[in-house]
Amino acid sequence: MAKTRLYIARHGKTMFNTIGRAQGWSDTPLTAEGEFGIKELGLGLKDAGLHFKEAFSSDSGRTLQTMEIILREIGQEDIPYTRDKRIREWCFGSLDGGYDGDLFNGVLPRIFDKDMSKLSHQELAEGIYRVDTAGWAETWEVLSSRIMEGFTAIAEKIAAQGGGDVIVVSHGMTIGTFLWLVDHNTPRSLGLDNGSISIVEYDDGKFTVKTIGDRSYRLRGREILEERENEK
C-alpha cells in the first residue's frame, strides 16, 4: 500500500490579505497577484511530476478559485474534487472582516496579560470567542475538533483506496492549527505564505508532518515562467 500524503496549500493572496483584514468566514477573491502566484504553484507542482489522486478544499470562494487554477495548471482537472466546510478558516465572529491590527493589536490584547505572539492556539481561540459580540465564533473544542475531523476524513478516504497523494487547499490559521494538533512542537506563528505547501503523511491511523510552508514549488514555477518569457 502506498503512503497517503496530503499536499496542503494555503490559498492565493486575496483582497483582504492585501489590505490586512481578518478574513475568517468572510470571503474575498484572489487579486491578480494572487492568481499569478497560484499559477506559479501549479506549474511547480507539475514540474515536480506530482499526480494527485483527488482534490479537496474548504467551501470558501478563495480556496475554490485557488484549486481551479492549480488543477488547470497541472492538467488534472478531471480528478475527483470535494469541498469540505470542516477545513474552513477560523471564524472571527463579529470581528470577521475587520482589520488585523484592530483584532490582534487592539481588542485581544485587552484580555491577555502576555505577549500576543506567545499565546497558544487554544488561548487565542478562547480570546476570540470571548470578544465576539455576535455569538458566531467557535470554542476551541469545536474549532479544533472540526479541523482535525476534516483532515482525518480526507486521509482515511484515500488510505482506504490504497493511499496516494492528494492536493488540499485550505487557510493559514486552519493549516497551522492542524499542523500543531499533529505535532505540538509546531510553532503557532508560522506565517504561512499564500501558495506555500505543507506536506503531512498518514499511515496506520497516524499523521506525521513532513514539510511546513514550502515555497519551492512556487519559486520553480516562477523560474519556468521566466524561462518561457526569455524564449520569446
Rank of each mutant, 00 (worst) to 15 (best):
M1Q: 09
A2D: 14
T14L: 01
M15P: 03
F16D: 08
T18F: 06
G20A: 01
L30G: 06
T31M: 07
T31H: 10
E40L: 13
G42N: 11
G49S: 12
S60Q: 09
Q65A: 09
M67P: 08
E68Q: 11
I69H: 01
I70P: 04
I74K: 00
G75F: 03
Y81P: 08
R83M: 10
K85T: 13
W90M: 13
G98M: 15
G101H: 12
D102M: 11
D102L: 12
G106S: 05
P109E: 07
I111S: 07
K118Q: 15
Q122D: 15
L124A: 12
E126Y: 12
I128A: 15
R130H: 15
V131T: 11
A137R: 14
A137F: 10
E138D: 12
V142L: 10
L143V: 01
L143P: 03
S145H: 09
R146Y: 01
G150Y: 02
I154D: 00
A155Q: 04
K157F: 06
A159L: 03
Q161L: 11
G162V: 05
G163F: 05
G164A: 01
H171K: 09
G172P: 11
F178A: 04
L179Q: 05
V182N: 07
D183W: 03
N185Q: 10
N185A: 10
I197D: 01
I199M: 00
D204S: 13
V209W: 02
K210W: 02
S216Y: 01
R220T: 03
R222N: 13
I224N: 09
I224P: 07
